[in-house]
Design a protein around this nucleic acid. Structure first.
Lengths: 129, 129
DNA sequence: GATAAGGCTTCCAGCTACTGGAAGCTCAAG
DNA sequence: CTTGAGCTTCCAGTAGCTGGAAGCCTTATC
């Protein structure tokens, strides 16, 4: 299977797949002509990566998870810890987003949104408080 | 006021202030010895930028907002449109975060987190579905 | 006056996770 | 034989800083 097909099979763009190889997340073999060849193990790794990235894991976390996946002596506690770390990040981000959303909503409601210069948003951004 | 003081007055690191000058968001004057001099206008701009960045506006949006702030003929509708754009981004991000959070939570609950290899998280990431 | 510490300057590199594009090799079809 | 598609590598750029090196300026101390 060449890179185009691997791309279709995993939903990852060819550029991304090459990048994952470059940073050592995958190591597809090569055919005589120098083309990458993707076997089942490569496709599994790529799908795994696509899933993990879809949950927002960083590539370094993906690397760890991938190592754990292929380690028959892994402890599920190690996996869980990584996932909990990601969840914590997510919740931290969610909190910050809620704060921004509240602020922005208030400002937007207070702004007339007409042809005049008077604007609560500008005032709020300009205020020293 | 030199850059250190401007930093303390605005909460922005000196590096960031220099970067903002580099990309043309501010244009502090220079003293004889080449040091940056921050006047009231510069400090106001920096505080404005700090506030806007705190709400997650991108630097290009900050640039537009800054231009609107100093434009006496601005229309508050233009400001409002930018703020609504940011709010829309925020809500889109919040939705995606909620989805990830739900998935992760489910996976984490299903993972024993012990010394055994069996792990729902790995299984879910490895599954083709 | 010498010297050391600290602040200022610029410039270069690196971070995350790709993405776009150029130059060039390979392969299949007509 | 040529054309077009697909593959390769390499370089550069994205956002918004951040760290660090090398070197000038200023102030304090001896």
């Amino acid at each position: 299977m060449n890179i185009q097909n691997a791309s279709q099979a995993t939903g990852l763009p060819p550029k991304t797949i090459r990048y994952y190889e470059e940073i050592g997340l995958i190591a597809p073999s090569r055919t005589e002509n120098g083309y990458r060849h993707f076997g089942d193990a490569d496709l599994n790794a790529l799908r795994f990566l696509a899933s993990a990235r879809g949950l927002g894991f960083k590539l370094e976390q993906c690397r760890q998870l991938l190592a754990l996946q292929t380690d028959p002596a892994r402890k599920s506690a190690d996996v869980k810890r990584i996932a909990q770390g990601r969840l914590a990040d997510l919740e931290e981000t969610a909190r910050r987003i809620e704060i921004m959303r509240g602020e922005l909503n208030r400002m937007i409601r207070a702004c007339p949104g007409n042809d005049e210069p008077g604007c609560a948003i500008i005032n709020r951004l300009s205020s020293t408080t």
